[in-house]
Design a protein around this nucleic acid. Structure first.
Lengths: 144, 144
DNA sequence: GTTTCTGCAAAATATTTGCACATGC
DNA sequence: GCATGTGCAAATATTTTGCAGAAAC
């Protein structure tokens, strides 16, 4: 599949400098940025970007289906550009780092459907990343 | 297993009127209230409850392991008291209604672990509940 | 040239905190 | 009685909105 910015051009999406930078910042696998992180990175490249434009643009991309909004327990939503390859997530509960993983979708048994019309499924593995496991081990040593 | 309020008493948790009402409001299956909803229901029973106390109490119960904090795409966290029976969720993307469902946990293949230490897995089925399916159908008819 | 986007600043929403007073045990 | 909980009000964090001016096409 073609890169995000090209897909957007094909959609006749008005491509301003701000929107292009925001789209570029979001490209790639394992990218799950919060709005303020998108803002910081975009502004580092193009200072003429406002947070309002970041929010506007994120919402448009979500509505277009080019970006997925991911709920996060810390209350800040993350934005996931990897819509080409359906995937699930591996989340470090200590530092919040999130990676894409590929797992077979679980099936909801008929007896558990409660009359709902199924649309999809999201799977998040809660875990500790290697850095945070190390940090816990060091802290334990310090206490001895 | 014994009810939530009794488990809390056994833990020597200081049981004030406010805390008891908050715990009662949260009891049961398929309960996934946001903080402000807990506040509204608790205040209906005991007007001498403040929102700050609701937040304090929710956090204590989460730290104690008597309540699970569930991320929600609308940014408001939900609180799930059903810690006795591990379960997953069926979420209506239109109205936000959430039910508990029982599904086998998906397994993360070795090749996808990225060196993380696994703690658990959360599964959310995105769906439309019967009420919202009906509402969409009625809206479609209105347009004819 | 028209339509749409952008930045700013203010508002709305959600959550957290500091502290004097109240209360369970 | 003392340790801990509570309410209030102010602070913080995140997201949304209104609108005049700017830029894409």
């Amino acid at each position: 599949m073609q890169p995000l910015v090209e897909r957007l051009r094909d959609r006749r999406w008005r491509l301003t400098a701000q929107r292009r930078v925001i789209a570029e910042v979001l490209a790639g696998e394992h990218v799950h940025l919060a709005a303020d992180e998108v803002f910081d990175r975009a502004r580092a490249i193009l200072p003429e970007v406002s947070l309002a434009t970041v929010y506007n643009t994120l919402h448009e991309l979500v509505d277009m289906g080019e970006l997925l909004e991911v709920a996060h327990v810390d209350g800040r939503k993350r934005y996931d550009p990897n819509v080409e390859h359906p995937h699930h997530h591996l989340l470090c509960v200590d530092c919040g780092r999130m990676l894409d993983v590929h797992v077979d979708d679980p099936r909801l048994p008929d007896g558990e459907q409660h009359g709902f019309e199924l649309l999809g499924v999201d799977v998040t593995f809660r875990a500790r990343c290697p850095d945070c496991v190390g940090r816990v081990a060091v802290a334990a040593l310090d206490r001895v």
